[in-house]
Amino acid sequence: MPEKIGIASVIGDIFKSPYYVVLAVIVAFIYYYLIIYLVQVDNSGAFLITIPSYLIYALVFASSILLTVSVYSIRKAFNATKSGLGGGVLSAISTFFSALIFSCGCTAPLLNIVLGLFALNIGTIVSLRNFLASYQALIVSAIIVMDVVFIFYQLSKLTKTCALDKGKIVSLKVKLK
């Protein structure tokens, strides 16, 4: 039977390591300044947002924690590497996409170009843009919730993994076929 490890233990294991704390902080800074840069490009140099600013901080926090837990998953766990990969990419995508919808979307935003990459026609692009503009705050909140859910998903995977020591399996605690 696999060793029973609680989510709290995993969180403790992650953040008692200075490596992961530093990683989380660095990633948070990168994401924050990426968001600022994208919003400014979208608004002719002005930092113009049309949603509450606390959502930006919440997104940066959730995304950086998600990436940190993902890296931990890849480093530490055998059967959680796939979720670690998914979590890492999700973290980057959710930050990038949210930055595109933080502001008004009026003056030919970057979002047009991104949606255009999917070969959508202009009518569909405009409809999507209108939808995103109308529900900006709700959509960003949902993205934050998605990040948090994925964090807990990864943590739950980590509680059921093989015991590892320095990235190596030290004992088989599951029955091999």
């Binding site: 979307g105 202009i122 405009v126 843009r129 209108n130 109308s134 529900y135 900006q136």
Partner: peptide, 10 residues
């Protein structure tokens, strides 16, 4: 009372 909206040129 809602948010920004516009339609395509057509």
């Amino acid at each position: 009372v809602q948010g920004f909206e516009v339609q395509p040129p057509s």
